[in-house]
Design a protein around this nucleic acid. Structure first.
Length: 169
DNA sequence: CGCCGGATTTAA
DNA sequence: TAAATCCGGCGA
């Protein structure tokens, strides 16, 4: 599947990030090397897939919020309760469900051929931005920050109406 | 050791 | 708009 929407979480000074409390057993992968997985259970129900972005000890990652199905449509539909719409993977919980992910994948390296890998792809022609979703608990500044990014021309994106095309893309 | 609450989804 | 659902993290 192709990633169509992500949210960035940084450290320090991001009151929305799981790193805001410092280093814990759960968020350990976020402090590790880029290209590794950070998984966590959200609301006791959904498995959230994050990709560590920065170097060691920087505590940063992007939450994979939405994807576009490229191949294996039947399998995805099966795991999504028969849904075949363009938005069947629009939402982080849906991505986790389609990939059968769980917290045991936390720390997994995404660059080993033959395993669960992150591959390169052409960048979107236009990128859209918006504030992050579901971070009402964060500071006003962090709630407003335009840290949600999406392929402006893909329908496989959640909360699409709030997105604004990033000038210059 | 117990409680609180959440980077969501779904259906009413 | 609210319920489902569970464990990490914090306070005692």
């Amino acid at each position: 599947m192709r990633i169509t929407e992500v949210e960035a979480y940084r450290h320090p000074d991001d009151t929305a990030s799981h790193c805001r409390m410092g280093r814990t057993k759960r968020n350990a992968p976020m402090w590790g090397r880029a290209g590794h997985v950070y998984m966590y259970l959200c609301y006791g129900i959904h498995m959230m897939l994050n990709i560590v972005t920065n170097d060691t000890d920087e505590g940063a990652a992007v939450l994979v919020r939405s994807c576009e199905v490229v191949e294996g449509h039947d399998l995805v539909a099966q795991r999504r309760g028969g849904l075949t719409s363009a938005t069947s993977l629009a939402g982080p919980g849906k991505v986790g469900a389609a990939l059968l992910l769980d917290t045991k994948w936390s720390g997994h390296a995404l660059y080993k051929p033959g395993e669960f890998v992150l591959r390169d792809a052409p960048p979107p022609a236009r990128i859209a931005r918006a504030p992050r979703i579901g971070v009402e608990f964060a500071s006003a500044k962090d709630r407003r920050a335009l840290y949600r990014f999406a392929d402006a021309d893909s329908l496989a994106v959640s909360h699409r109406k709030a997105l604004r095309v990033w000038p210059g893309t």
